[in-house]
């Protein structure tokens, strides 16, 4: 995959969830330029071209959408969101927060930090698949992203 033109960055530590998500996006032909990282740390390295991604050209890695799980080891989704929003070059990238739980106490915090959406992943696969499809459709096709 060409990391220079990523449309969707999926930050998900749960490999099964990631697979189901990617499967659904692929099914709808929206995963051609999808990059998946498995935790917040890797996500930040990728976004800011540091660590294992320091050879990337910063300007090239601006995705159309970041799907970010909240509960992750090391650096969680909220910290990732905070970093993205606090950096001028990434501040306007649409970020959709994904969570497994309705009980998530961080929903307010996420919106306050500038999350574009807050999605609870349904247990039921049909609903989950529908949700992923809708997200991809909306952010990649309907939404007009800010200029790079």
């Amino acid at each position: 995959m060409n990391q220079d033109s990523v449309d969707i960055l999926l930050i998900e530590d749960n490999e099964n969830d990631a697979e189901l998500t990617i499967r659904e996006l692929k099914k709808n032909n929206m995963a051609n330029n999808l990059m998946q990282v498995s935790d917040g740390e890797e996500a930040l390295e990728f976004i800011f071209c540091t660590g294992r991604y320091k050879s990337n050209k910063p300007i090239a890695v601006r995705p159309k959408l970041i799907l970010c799980d909240i509960q992750m080891p090391k650096v969680n989704g909220i910290e990732v969101l905070q970093k993205i929003r606090s950096h001028p070059s990434t501040a306007t990238i649409p970020v959709v927060m994904l969570t497994s739980s309705k009980e998530d106490p961080d929903i307010q915090k996420c919106y306050a930090l500038g999350a574009n959406s807050y999605i609870v992943k349904p247990v039921d696969f049909g609903s989950f698949a529908q949700a992923i499809k809708n997200i991809g459709y909306y952010w990649l096709l309907l939404n007009h992203p800010p200029a790079k």
């Binding site: 749960n14 099964n16 969830d17 189901l20 499967r23 509960q71 969570t99 497994s100 739980s101 309705k102 009980e103 998530d104 106490p105 992943k121 349904p122 247990v123 039921d124 696969f125 049909g126 989950f128 698949a129």
Partner: peptide, 25 residues
């Protein structure tokens, strides 16, 4: 309790989603 609820909510749901998801696939 809150932490437990959160964890139940989060951690129990994810595997369920996996089971359903892959069974559906």
């Amino acid at each position: 309790m809150e932490a437990f609820t959160y964890s139940v909510s989060h951690d129990l749901r994810a595997p369920l989603r996996g089971i359903i998801g892959f069974t559906t696939i």
